[in-house]
């Protein structure tokens, strides 16, 4: 069983998107978190997930960003 949080910090494009997409395709749960630390990764994941009909909640602090993806 894959964890419900993906840690994509420090990874360069397109790894964060690929990991998130794999999780979206295989996850049995309706919601999971993605931890990123770059604006590009955050924007790319938000765009892909919303484009596929998922809801994305973004929580940012100084260096990192938690994206909570949920099936609508």
């Amino acid at each position: 069983m894959m964890p419900d949080r993906i840690d994509a910090r420090g990874l360069s494009c397109p790894q964060p998107v690929v990991m998130t997409r794999n999780k979206m395709d295989t996850s049995k749960s309706c919601s999971f978190e993605v931890l990123v630390d770059s604006g590009a990764a955050r924007d790319n994941i938000c765009r892909m997930a919303t484009g596929m009909g998922w809801d994305v909640q973004v929580t940012e602090d100084a260096d990192e960003c938690i994206l909570v993806l949920s099936k609508k």
Partner: peptide, 18 residues
């Protein structure tokens, strides 16, 4: 985040044409 390589990659990988 303008990137010519990324444009082709995203189109092929996730059908994202942004």
């Amino acid at each position: 985040r303008f990137c010519t390589m990324g444009a082709v990659r995203d189109a092929m990988l996730i059908r994202d044409f942004h």
